[in-house]
Design a protein around this nucleic acid. Structure first.
Lengths: 233, 233
DNA sequence: GATTGACATGTAACATACAACACGTCACAT
DNA sequence: ATGTGACGTGTTGTATGTTACATGTCAATC
């Protein structure tokens, strides 16, 4: 398992340790695991691990079975479809709002995020790049003013993070991921809500499609398109 | 505090006991509370209460302050605006999807929910009515096929429940709340996605507006309208 | 041979003991 | 009078002991 980072409460550390262990695939999905095992391998007591599991269960990453253990829920194509549908329903209108509300300070913050993405790209650090990508989306969404929306969308990405990394590696250069973000920044800066929303829509559909195709094949990607169709007018 | 219902784990029971205590206003907001106090008054140890607090913190109902206690977060007009914005962004498209996907079984389930709402109305049980109202929305949303969407929207209602009760009592008869649901059922049954979506939109805007007006006045309601404007094209 | 039930085993759920921490208070020095 | 620091108090955070439960096994019975 572990390294177990060196800040925050034990519970916090256990939470992120578990999250990355799960995303790395270190904890076999659909199998019963015992809390005490994990606790030992992390070098903490059972309590913080248990509390971390309660959080992760709320996020839908694990399920706790009474007096039996917990299982890591393997995410299916259906999960990805759900997540990208939700992101589309929320991020597109939020982007529209952001473009019509953004102050110069907001634009500067987005700019700073992009700069950090560039740095990560230069350092060829895919994991860092993904973290900064995520931060860019957070910043953008928070401009809309809806804190709950920002938090929820961000939490959705916990389920997909590892897949995201592999996307970056396999199907396109990091630079190709950067481009849509530059476009978003430009449209938000220039106060073009409709265009910004369209750009976000396109960005998410394309990312979701790529992810689904590479993880589960063309069939799954097609079901994504179907699902989207039902929501739209 | 308590009665503490008689099924489920201690943690489950503590969670719902706390939730209703908070919504009833038994735990003063913006004040530090100690876990051991609550645990005593519930007759359980601190552990399940603590675990319940972790869940409620994830829902945004409380905030835990390290080594100090926890505070009940008083929801502001802003919270209500956020929540109804999110519900609009999600429930309207989900209703559209539901109307285009619903099977006869789904319609029957909705019909059963409505019947239970009628029963609650006949028994003049406002609290039960609200629970059934919530169940109707759950059923409707789950027809869309997006489980995460259903759960998230449902969780948003935890914050508003008590206000909802007072809405029912003060500003309109229960019968007037039933009507929009009947219309939704009709439009979903007849497979009219666009009309169903419009009906849900109208229903949510109207409910949100009423709630905000009665809780915080016209000014707050106006800010709701403003917020919606930014999301829409 | 199939079915049932007692029991052993492993587990989470819960209670409790202990340590670390944040904060208020009060004495003391300046 | 004011600032500073030690200390007391109340609280969580964490560890660990204890209880109750879900399940698999295996023997007894039909």
């Amino acid at each position: 398992m572990e390294p177990l980072q060196s800040q925050g409460s034990m519970t916090d550390r256990a939470t992120s340790a578990l999250r990355s262990a799960i995303l790395r695939g270190d904890l076999e999905p659909n199998t019963l695991h015992a809390v005490h095992t994990v606790a030992e391998s992390l070098g903490v007591s059972r309590t913080p691990v248990r509390e971390a599991l309660i959080r992760l269960a709320a996020e839908g990453m694990v399920r706790v079975q009474r007096n039996r253990g917990f299982v890591v829920l393997r995410h299916s194509p259906r999960d990805l479809v759900e997540i990208f549908s939700l992101r589309l329903l929320l991020e597109v209108p939020a982007t529209r709002a952001a473009a019509s509300l953004a102050t110069p300070d907001d634009v500067a913050a987005l700019d700073a995020d992009i700069a950090r993405m560039r740095d990560a790209m230069a350092a060829d650090d895919a994991e860092l790049f993904l973290r900064e990508d995520r931060q860019f989306h957070r910043t953008l969404l928070s401009i809309s003013g809806n804190e709950r929306l920002t938090e929820f969308v961000d939490s959705l990405r916990n389920v997909v993070l590892s897949s995201g990394v592999s996307t970056a590696n396999r199907t396109e250069s990091i630079g190709e991921i950067l481009e849509p973000h530059l476009e978003l920044l430009r449209l938000v800066r220039d106060g073009k809500p409709t265009e910004a929303a369209a750009s976000m829509h396109e960005h998410l559909v394309s990312t979701g499609h790529k992810l689904l195709t590479q993880e589960f094949g063309d069939e799954a990607a097609a079901s994504f398109a179907d699902a989207l169709g039902a929501y739209e007018a």
